[in-house]
């Protein structure tokens, strides 16, 4: 009995730091954000006083204006749709590039695996911003990439294209920055696969392709879902990359939120947009979770 009690205490002590972290850096800011969403904007950022006294009568300054504005202006929804599109595209590209690579690393000889994994992680050693700036040089109008793309377009009789400051540049940078977050969970999953299962499927007459699609892919579903989540969720709130390499047709919802706090100084509208975004991401995660728990592969993988 005493032992069980102790284990309970230990659990509690161990979970204290993450709980404090979540309360301080997630729960409190989220609650604040919800409160701010219903307030009137202050003259210079912040919010207007909750209660104003005017000739003896007090009035409560709560409003739904932020929500009304957000739901009535089409451009906010356009930004949401665009952010969704960029994020889905990025996630798909990361999956298409990341899966074969993760499989290759998982299947290579043990002595090379750490080295290969290290090569995936190395870009993390330099700052995220520096890596985006590097892409600005790589995509610039006089870069080799631009020259190749534009000489192909020239052969096809098409107008030359600016790669930098375009939606394409935004997606390229998003894919590049997020790729390791797809590869690492996929590798962690693929590395644990029992090769005997593949052999069994081959013995039963399945070709290489069939045993890949019917054994390896379903078994790696947890890795795929984890990777997609890790890529999709940070993508949708991104604002630095569109700002650095995008044009005014590639702004995302994160740019709008940043704009509301740093330029417009309309905190309530910024909060409303953040809340809508949070709810959106949450509902997508729940939907994907629901799909996952009903997909066959995951059941096998869990067993």
């Amino acid at each position: 009995m005493a032992q069980a009690n102790n284990a309970g205490k230990e659990k509690w002590v161990l979970s204290l730091p993450p709980v404090i972290y979540l309360i301080g850096l997630f729960l409190i800011p989220t609650v604040l954000m919800v409160f701010i969403a219903f307030r009137e904007p202050g003259d210079y950022g912040g919010v207007a006083p909750l209660i104003t006294h005017n000739n003896g009568s007090s009035s409560l300054n709560l409003t739904l204006d932020g929500f009304r504005y957000a739901f009535s202006s089409s451009f906010i929804w356009k930004l949401f749709l665009r952010s969704m599109f960029f994020s889905i595209l990025t996630t798909l590209c990361c999956l298409l590039i990341g899966y074969p690579l993760a499989l290759l690393i998982a299947k290579s000889a043990k002595k090379y695996r750490d080295l290969l994994l290290l090569l995936v992680i190395i870009p993390f050693w330099s700052n995220f911003l520096i890596r985006v700036y590097a892409w600005m040089i790589l995509l610039g109008p006089n870069s080799a990439i631009s020259n190749v793309v534009n000489s192909i377009r020239h052969l096809l009789g098409l107008e030359p294209l600016d790669l930098l400051f375009s939606s394409a540049a935004v997606v390229i940078c998003l894919v590049y920055i997020n790729l390791p977050f797809m590869i690492l969970p996929l590798y962690a999953n693929l590395e644990k696969h029992d090769y005997a299962l593949i052999e069994a499927s081959r013995d039963l007459g399945a070709g290489k392709a069939r045993s890949f699609w019917q054994v390896t892919v379903p078994l790696s579903m947890p890795g795929i879902l984890a990777g997609c989540g890790l890529v999709f969720i940070p993508c949708i709130g991104m604002f630095v990359i569109p700002e650095l390499v995008g044009n005014n047709c590639s702004m995302m919802i994160g740019n709008l939120i940043k704009q509301q706090f740093l330029q417009t100084m309309n905190w309530p509208l910024g909060s409303v947009t953040s809340i809508v975004m949070t709810l959106l991401v949450l509902s997508i995660s729940l939907f994907v979770g629901f799909l996952a728990s009903h997909s066959g592969g995951l059941k096998y993988a869990r067993k």
């Binding site: 451009f75 599109f85 740019n255 509301q260 417009t264 309309n266």
Partner: peptide, 24 residues
């Protein structure tokens, strides 16, 4: 004045972010 500033900035955000460029 604060009211004009917020309205102008809101207008600017719309100009800048909606552009005339469809969704993508």
């Amino acid at each position: 004045d604060p009211k004009t500033r917020i309205m102008v900035n809101e207008m600017w955000t719309e100009i800048k972010m909606s552009g005339n460029c469809g969704i993508f």
